[in-house]
Design a protein around this nucleic acid. Structure first.
Lengths: 213, 213
DNA sequence: GCACGACCGTGACATTTGTCCTGCCCAGGA
DNA sequence: TCCTGGGCAGGACAAATGTCACGGTCGTGC
């Protein structure tokens, strides 16, 4: 007995949940997938914190999740789905092929990782492959993710870095995180050192591009 | 005689050029527009510097342009099309409804300005309205753009700000722009003052959110 | 001609940022 | 048990950043 048979709804049509914040993108993808004879979009959400409820409600076979969503990260939602909605396979669909994103997606139990570049046809193909139990990942990206290793930043270092992303001063960050200014400077210095950069702005860029935040 | 008749190709089908860097988005929109019986996508490009050539080649009625494109800004391309391809109406399609973007789009001769939020149906509707000679702009956004006034930053202030966006030091910027470090600091200070912010990072954020860069 | 503003530069100065070293507490592993 | 690593904090110091006052050159417009 194949995995496909288990996962399929009896009608033979793949039930897909779509989570994507940009309205036009969401609508376009939904319409597109809906055109495929064997695919049916049963739920659409624009926020990360609406994913779980929608999934429990509509029991999709595949959840197509953007990562950067308002309310809750698609990666967090993926982990949640894994626990609360085991029949549902997660396929991550993201703008950025950051090594750290891929790593975290896999750790969260995602079955596939797709970048928003590349042709649209890949989307339906990936949905079907994931449903068949295959794992869908760009090999080059996978290699990069493996070779890069996990994030060298500690939880607090990442916190401080993101808290300063908007141009906040050391004092601002210290206040926001209930830390002393000395501590903030120490974390920032550590983050700068670990990223091999020269200041917090560069450190932030590097950490972001690696998917460490 | 209506404007529509002038602009239309004889077949009665609207010829559309699509410029959008994200592959999946581009493909999805092209497919979608292609589904409309009266619309035909005659050219697709992923870079800003390919727009003009493609337009001259395919003579579209409407050019659907993203703003943030590699190679050349969609806004610059719009101004170019206005001069070299007068029969072609420009419809800007962008992620961010920044007041300054709208202002510059209109100054560049765009006939419409659409944000990527909002439903997909708006897209085909906007294409048709632009072709009929109407101007398509979200009224709330238009009001914001008008009330905000034009950018207070001079060309050089904007240059220096963007050159420092990646965390470059004063010395880096000075070298990149062939300026003295003192001059760079003066421009930076001016930009910080005009944006009412406390440092270059905040100034950059503010200038970006206003569409001044 | 003159005022104005954009452009470019200098130098001095105060503040912020980044580095390094020290110390303490606590949890988990060898 | 000791050792290590994370979290937190203080202090001293050098470097980068931001401010200000000043001077000069252009072009545009009144």
């Amino acid at each position: 007995m194949t995995e496909t048979a288990e996962a399929h709804s009896p009608t033979g049509s793949v039930r897909v949940l779509l989570a994507e914040d940009q309205g036009m993108m969401r609508g376009a993808l939904a319409l597109l997938l809906g055109l495929e004879p064997d695919i049916e979009v049963v739920a659409q959400v624009a926020r990360g914190d609406e994913i779980l409820a929608a999934a429990l409600d509509s029991a999709p076979d595949v959840a197509l999740l953007d990562i950067e969503l308002p309310g809750r990260s698609g990666l967090d939602a993926a982990a949640e789905l894994r626990a609360r909605c085991p029949g549902c396979r997660v396929l991550i669909l993201t703008t950025f092929g950051r090594p750290g994103y891929l790593r975290r997606a896999m750790e969260a139990g995602a079955r596939g990782f797709l970048v928003k570049d590349g042709p649209v046809e890949e989307l339906a193909r990936a949905v079907r492959r994931v449903l068949r139990g295959e794992t869908v990942v760009d090999p080059a990206l996978a290699a990069a993710a493996l070779s890069a290793g996990p994030s060298p930043l500690t939880r607090r270092e990442a916190d401080v870095l993101t808290a300063g992303a908007d141009g906040s001063t050391v004092a601002d960050i210290a206040h926001a995180l209930h830390l002393s200014e000395s501590t903030v400077r120490n974390y920032l210095s550590a983050a700068i050192g670990k990223t091999g950069t020269r200041n917090r702005t560069e450190a932030l860029r590097e950490a972001r591009s690696q998917g460490w935040l």
